[in-house]
Write a protein that binds this DNA or RNA. Structure first.
Lengths: 232, 232
DNA sequence: TAGATTGTTAATCGATTAACAATC
DNA sequence: TAGATTGTTAATCGATTAACAATC
């Protein structure tokens, strides 16, 4: 009933490993997948500053993991390093991007243009990392028709048409929690296969759809747990 | 060297279980801790709508986990249910809040007032869930001295004084990635023990400090992985 | 008592770490 | 060849799930 809810707030759940890409007959564990974006980002940085080859130790440091963890993770993708030497930055970058499926940009629709939605709409980091924001939706008639971040805000009735027309595969929910499930249902009905929600609400989705949830208050509460002085 | 970096993007790492609260001599697994905020939020909802008693099945549904998972998690906190009946909402709510350490509000300082920082400063959900935003910092001279969300923006030089004066235990970083490590170092030097960062950069912290990282682009890339059609 | 539901103990499964063999 | 570093195989550890006993 509930689909692959890959993360509640920051935990990998759901199926733990997933059919791998291209040649490989293997599969990639969920925990590994969740670290690949960090590796890719670090590789992008190295590439930008002209580094051609990197050892697992250097890359691991940049990504904030141990070199053993990194090599183990990369081994699920294939054997792309040279023993005694390291990894070709450009080659590994392409392999990781390929496994993540971000060599072609994905189209993203954003629903909800409150403070957070506005911030997300203006966030420049999408394009760099394989995503194009192609549509904005909000229920407020005062916002519909206005232009935000170069896109015209559409009403909820146009959501299905918008997803269909743009071929968006991912929907981002930045609405109040009360309408998050309805928005999610509409996104799924329109055809998206991935949902990123910022609303503090568990979302039900069919099995073929993935949900990831980011909840700032939950993150702070987890920090609070560690910060607390255990009372004797 | 690297402190308890509890999550890179959405994964629980670091020490896997942590000394528990109050009476209990037991410890609470990291995976359980990461789900407690969801349980607490669900309990708050039930409380608000007047529900006095809830079964593990109902609560689990509201929180988006299985009832087995929920009961197992709650068992680490103690035995607070009544067999054949369920859990007293009010009582369990207090127990969970107590374990998380959010019965007393925590003071939070926010650094970086770009789009995201502004959105966070205006986010209303903090107070409800145990956090009080007590200070804002930005390096832009045009912002310093202005009022945002009822607080006067302070310059970076005042960070240490601000944390000291307010007793803030948690710092939120919403700055550009390039300065995130410096900001983090300053927060840690000023005495915060928890850091929530939105900058896509691995942060180094001493062992007594916890870091949690939220990276929207990484979340999207993980969704992209699942969305991709594996090419034969 | 019978039915419902919790909470513990045991079994399974996945993820991380350690050891080491392969090879550049 | 010797040194460096990758990548695999095995060992450990933690998290989830299943089975069931306890008890309201």
């Amino acid at each position: 009933m509930t689909g692959r809810v890959v993360a509640r707030s920051p935990l990998v759940g759901g199926p733990t490993s997933v059919p791998a890409t291209s040649g490989t007959a293997t599969s990639v564990p969920a925990a590994t997948v969740s670290r690949l974006p960090g590796y890719l980002h670090a590789l992008d940085g190295l590439h930008a500053n002209g580094t051609a080859v990197v050892t697992s130790q250097e890359l691991a440091r940049a990504a904030g993991v141990t070199s053993v963890q990194l090599r183990k993770d990369l081994s699920f993708l294939g054997s792309y390093g040279r023993r005694g030497v390291g990894y070709d930055v450009e080659h590994l970058r392409h392999q990781v991007a390929d496994v993540l499926g971000v060599r072609e940009p994905h189209s993203v629709v954003l629903v909800g243009l409150g403070n957070l939605g506005h911030a997300l709409a203006h966030y420049g980091g999408f394009a760099d990392r394989g995503f194009t924001l192609v549509g904005l939706v909000d229920a407020d008639p005062a916002l519909v028709g206005t232009e935000v971040a170069g896109l015209v805000v559409e009403p909820p009735e146009r959501l299905a048409e918008l997803v269909g027309r743009t071929g968006a595969t991912i929907g981002v929910i930045a609405t109040p929690a009360g309408v998050a499930q309805d928005v999610c249902d509409a996104l799924v009905a329109a055809g998206v296969t991935g949902v990123l929600t910022f609303a503090p609400r568990a979302l039900r989705v069919p099995a073929h759809v993935d949900v990831r949830a980011v909840d700032v208050a939950s993150e702070l509460q987890i920090l609070a747990f560690h910060a607390r002085r255990p009372r004797a």
